[in-house]
Computed example of a mutant assay.
Amino acid sequence: MELLELWKKHLEKTKSERTTITYINALRSFLKKIKIDENVVNVSSKDFYHYADLSELSPASLLTHFSAIRHFYRFLARRGFLPKEKFSEIEEAIEEIKEEYGLNTLYRKPKALEKSELERIFQKVKGSKYEKIYQLFLYSGIRLSEYKNLKPEHFFLDKSGIYWIRLPAEITKRRKERMAPLLGPSREETYRFTENLSKYLENYEETLSTNAGSLQVYTNRLSKKLGFQFSLHSFRHTYITNLINQGFPAELVKEFAGHANVKTTIDIYYRFNPERARALVENFLKG
């Protein structure tokens, strides 16, 4: 279908490879279930309820499917293939289904790793390549999909003596060039990592490069062995949380993290924290 192909090209430019595949498969599943072959615009509210009622998907998978479906019809509406009034009806139906099936409660705020958890992780990988790679994830906020294409030339040392990472558009999730400082929870830890990173970069393949799939499998097994849940993405959440705790404004954190818009950054990460609030006030008074 022509419209599906147009949407697929749009996804390939704006989403990660994994998300693109997931969204395409989800939409095809929907269209097949409600028996629409060519005229994908010819849908009604009952089609969405029909899909939800007959689906054998888990709640989390069903939520993903409806996210993909809504994205597709929003794409059509913005490009004039679907009347905006029609999209409003579709969006309203999807929201009602999410509420009826309790899908809105599935989303959880990302959790940063606590200091004790980080200590246990790094104690377990001490002296191995994984120690260095985990440090890279923790201090850069990099995504696994970005790590897969990372090269030594993407790092540079600035005048203040810390490393930055410059990711070209073609390897980022949003297909937009991103620059981010490699920072830790404190000044001392940041400079300690900077010193170590200089050594790591001298022999990048041996110190920081490994198969992304194997890294993910190893991390999942380590999580089970240690008895608490974490993933490679947990290091990214921790990096972003550290930036916020250090007082970086939302618009900067958004750029460093590579979020699509600042609302994502604020809604997900900027929760009120009394300790952070007091620290910021104290720092202001010191100045």
Rank of each mutant, 00 (worst) to 15 (best):
L4Q: 09
E5S: 15
W7G: 01
K15H: 15
E17M: 12
T19P: 03
N25P: 02
L27H: 03
R28D: 15
K33M: 02
V41Q: 14
V43K: 01
D47I: 07
Y49T: 09
Y49I: 10
D53W: 03
E56Y: 08
P59R: 01
S61D: 06
S61Y: 05
T64P: 00
T64V: 06
S67Y: 05
I69E: 04
F75H: 10
E85A: 04
E89N: 04
E96A: 04
I97K: 12
Y101E: 11
N104L: 07
K109R: 14
P110F: 11
K115W: 02
L118S: 09
Q123V: 01
K126E: 08
K132I: 06
K132T: 03
Y134D: 06
Y134L: 05
Q135C: 01
K151Y: 12
P152H: 10
H154C: 09
F156C: 03
L157C: 05
K159T: 07
S160R: 13
S160Q: 11
G161L: 08
Y163T: 01
I165C: 06
R166A: 08
L167N: 10
I171N: 02
M179F: 15
P181Q: 06
L183D: 02
P185H: 08
P185W: 07
E189R: 13
E189P: 01
T194D: 07
Y200E: 00
L201S: 09
E202W: 03
V217K: 15
K224E: 09
K224A: 03
K225V: 07
F228T: 09
Q229H: 15
F235S: 04
F235N: 06
T238Q: 14
I240V: 14
E255R: 15
A260Q: 04
A260L: 01
V262Y: 02
I266A: 08
I266K: 15
Y269P: 06
Y269E: 08
F272L: 01
R278A: 14
R278M: 11
A279Q: 14
L280V: 11
